[in-house]
Amino acid sequence: MTDTTEQLAPHAVERLQGLRSQGSHEGIFTSDLSVNEFVMVRKANFEPLGLVVGSCIYHMGIQYGNWNQNMEMDVLSQAMYQARELAMSRMEQEATLLQADGIVGVRLEVKRMEWDQDILEFMAIGTAIAHRSGASGFKGVGGKPFTSDLSGQDFWMLLQAGYRPMEMVMGSCVYHVAHQGFLQSMGNVGRNTEMEQFTQAMYDARELAMERMQHEAQEAQADGITGVQLHEGSHNWKPHIIEFFAIGTAVKAMDNADALVDALRPQLVIPVND
């Protein structure tokens, strides 16, 4: 088995060695959980171990779209997917070093680097947690720490309902939306009319992103996906090039799921935040 620390930056290893690990209360914990989330994670019988981070600075390849054709930009789609996967895998390696059961509250961020318009930084960040009594059965796919974008409150409720998170699943599609010809543009002047070419492009691109997300959940043998979000952004690419990104948390029922769901009762929740 490959030593996890070999793939992490030396300063990352030093930082993690000063944090808690599963079954040990030596060191401190760090997290980006709010106070409410921290309480609910503890109520679920888990405890935070440390903030885990993965980063990848990636140079994007070149691909040109046909001016009047709707088409996926395969080179860019693959680049966005691979870069996020690298960032996620490094975050998981940090969680593994802490002997965590999983990671909650994961955020994926993308930003363009100022020194080169073709270079983007991808960052994954979340809080590694472990079961307080060391109970097994909460790891994700392949025995790795599970990943999820669930809040502390959602994580507690998911367990109460008899489900557990497996992994964050995602799908990406970078798409070139065709331009309209001059005559077609002139024909629309002053009229209410659907832009069918644009509608079809946006529809196809979102469907491709969601289909890829669903495929990841099927590969993880999950029962479903919760908290799905659809994002779109141009990342300062040329006009008419847009990324559609679908992300959610794949979940799986535990053995006692039906009994736990039947025992749940609706509760009045009064938010205390402003």
Rank of each mutant, 00 (worst) to 15 (best):
T2D: 12
T5G: 03
V13A: 02
L16R: 00
G18Y: 00
L19P: 01
H25A: 13
E26F: 11
G27H: 01
G27R: 02
I28K: 13
T30H: 02
V41Y: 02
A44L: 09
N45R: 09
V53A: 04
G54R: 01
Y58V: 02
M60T: 10
W67I: 12
L76Y: 08
L76P: 01
S89K: 15
R90W: 09
M91H: 03
Q93M: 09
Q93P: 01
Q99G: 06
V106Q: 06
V106M: 07
E109G: 11
V110Q: 10
R112T: 10
F122K: 06
F122G: 05
M123A: 13
G126C: 04
H131A: 09
H131D: 00
G134V: 06
G140I: 01
V141A: 05
V141F: 08
G142H: 06
W156V: 08
Q160H: 03
R164G: 06
E167Q: 10
V169F: 06
G171A: 08
Y175S: 08
H179Y: 15
Q180M: 14
Q180A: 13
M186Q: 12
N188D: 15
E194Q: 13
Q197L: 11
M202V: 15
Q214W: 08
E216P: 06
A217M: 06
D223E: 11
D223Y: 10
I225E: 00
G227F: 03
L230G: 02
H240N: 15
A246R: 05
V251G: 00
A259R: 14
A259D: 13
L260G: 08
V261D: 06
P266Y: 03
P266C: 10
I270C: 04
N273F: 11
D274G: 03
